[in-house]
C-alpha cells in the first residue's frame, strides 16, 4: 500500500513491476488493470490505482488477486 490512511472505494499500490507492464499482462487474462499514476505524479511512477467498484463479484476480485500473485 502506498499510503497508510484508510481507503474508501479505491487504493494505491506500489508495484515491483512497472504498472504499465502489469496492465499489459493482465490484458492477456482479459482483465483491465488499475490506473498507472506516473503520468499524473512523477513521484508515483510505481503507483497503481485500483478500483474494483460494486459491480465486480468476489470471483472477479479473486481472479485479479491470483493473476497479480502469479506475476510478482
Amino acid at each position: 500500500m502506498a499510503f497508510p490512511g484508510p481507503t474508501f472505494h479505491e487504493f494505491v499500490l506500489r508495484c515491483p513491476l512497472p504498472p504499465e507492464e502489469i496492465n499489459r499482462r493482465l490484458l492477456d487474462a482479459e482483465i483491465l488493470g488499475g490506473l498507472p499514476l506516473g503520468r499524473f505524479y512523477r513521484e508515483l511512477a510505481d503507483g497503481w490505482l485500483v478500483c474494483v467498484t460494486e459491480s465486480r463479484t468476489r470471483q472477479d476480485i479473486d481472479r485479479l488477486a491470483a493473476a497479480l500473485e502469479e506475476m510478482v
Binding site: 484508510p6 460494486e54 463479484t57 468476489r58 470471483q59 476480485i61
Partner: peptide, 12 residues
C-alpha cells in the same frame, strides 16, 4: 454482495 462484509467501524 458476495464479498464478506465487515463493520465500517473496523476499517474507518
Amino acid at each position: 454482495s458476495d464479498v464478506p462484509e465487515v463493520p465500517l467501524e473496523q476499517i474507518l
